[in-house]
């Protein structure tokens, strides 16, 4: 177990592991996303109150879920970096933040498109929508830190601290719809069950799985690029490029 962990946080081992598994994971994720979303959009039944417009759920919920999960994992990585100075943790944060920003934007955008016909408005400043917008701003702030320092270790440290402080927003997003009166409805899928009919729920769960696989695949690829940037002068990198020639 310990050996496996040590291998995963070592740059050459991780690079090779990602190099081999990326194509399979990527193709699998595209297949699962297409399967879930196409099933949801074309074959699942129409919602009784919302009509066809509810089908945007097959993009909105997976995007919102992935957007928050990425931040949760970044908080764990930030603590890991701050205590143990494991470089892989900072590679992880820097690689995942742009993905988090994209999926947060997608969640806000699809939510807005759904809100216009359903609620009667594109945007309101209720607790759920506002805290999600703050998540997007946090991601952008973290991305803007990447090139703000001359020294690598200063950047990594600054990114870790901002990620950790921003973690305060996560429980607010999660609990906003339960604690306060918001326009956004409360969660449909909880640990105790789901208030979505099974015929609609199954394609939704498949799309969510597909989005997670996709983010894992692209995240690994981005980490490879970040590792190459940092280790370009190391002998193991040169060796890999010689081999592939």
């Amino acid at each position: 177990m310990r050996q496996l962990f040590n291998q995963l946080i070592s740059f050459p081992y991780f690079f090779k592991f990602a190099q081999i598994s990326f194509p399979y994971l990527f193709l699998l994720s595209i297949f699962v996303i297409l399967f879930g979303v196409l099933w949801g959009v074309f074959f699942s039944p129409v919602d009784a109150t919302q009509g066809e417009v509810y089908r945007i759920i097959y993009l909105h919920v997976p995007a919102a879920s992935v957007a928050q999960s990425i931040y949760y994992t970044m908080v764990i990585a930030s603590i890991t970096y701050l205590i143990w100075r494991i470089k892989m943790a900072s590679v992880f944060m820097i690689s995942m933040a742009p993905l988090g920003a994209i999926f947060t934007f997608l969640a806000l955008f699809t939510g807005s498109v759904w809100g216009q016909p359903t609620w009667g408005t594109w945007w309101v400043w209720d607790a759920r929508l506002t805290s999600t917008l703050i998540l997007l701003i946090l991601y952008l702030a973290i991305i803007s830190l990447f090139s703000s320092f001359d020294r690598r270790s200063s950047t990594d440290q600054a990114v870790s601290i901002v990620v950790l402080i921003g973690g305060i927003n996560l429980p607010i997003i999660k609990l906003s719809v339960e604690w306060w009166n918001t326009l956004h409805q409360s969660a449909s899928i909880t640990l105790s069950g789901s208030s979505i009919d099974n015929e609609m729920l199954i394609p939704l769960l498949i799309s969510i799985l597909g989005f997670y696989l996709y983010v894992t695949a692209i995240g690994m690829r981005r980490m490879q690029v970040e590792i190459l940037k940092r280790e370009i002068s190391h002998s193991w990198v040169k060796k890999i490029f010689k081999e592939s020639r």
Partner: peptide, 18 residues
């Protein structure tokens, strides 16, 4: 001055509701 509809967390197919 403005009316917004609030949707609940329930998603039910038309046929099932009928």
């Amino acid at each position: 001055k403005e009316i917004l509809a609030k949707h609940d967390e329930n998603y039910i197919p038309k046929e099932v509701k009928k």
